[in-house]
């Protein structure tokens, strides 16, 4: 029996191989802003984001991109940040999110991924 008769499709493979992921940025960010390690991915930052009202930027997603080494997506997303600092004030864990953004930009520059 053909499977499309069941009304299902097959999603593309969404596995992420962390062994092959590029985590060099993550390491740099962790060194530069140690409070990054306190993040519990609650999403308060994304909920309060000024730019998030107008576009799809989400610091929580940026976080995931960073941890999975999805540099291209990260680079696109992070450029939308206005650095207003609301996320920092909303963070229940005291993560210096504003500096995390700056640290990611610096890490992108240091690793040379900024231009790719």
């Amino acid at each position: 029996m053909k499977k499309d008769k069941w009304g299902y499709g097959i999603h593309p493979d969404r596995q992420i191989d962390l062994d092959n992921a590029n985590l060099s940025l993550l390491e740099l960010v962790r060194q530069s802003e140690p409070s990054y390690n306190l993040c519990i991915a609650c999403g308060s930052c994304a909920a309060t984001c000024t730019a998030g009202n107008l576009t799809t930027i989400s610091l929580r997603r940026i976080n995931i991109y960073l941890q999975r080494g999805m540099i291209k997506e990260l680079r696109e997303e992070i450029r939308r940040c206005m650095l207003c600092g609301k996320c920092y004030l909303a963070c229940p864990r005291g993560v210096n999110t504003r500096h995390v953004i700056i640290a990611i930009h610096e890490a992108l520059k240091a690793t040379g991924y900024e231009e790719l």
Binding site: R79, C81, M82, H105, L108
Partner: peptide, 9 residues
Amino acid sequence: TSFKSDFSY
């Protein structure tokens, strides 16, 4: 470092 900001949205 420059942010190369994209505020086209």
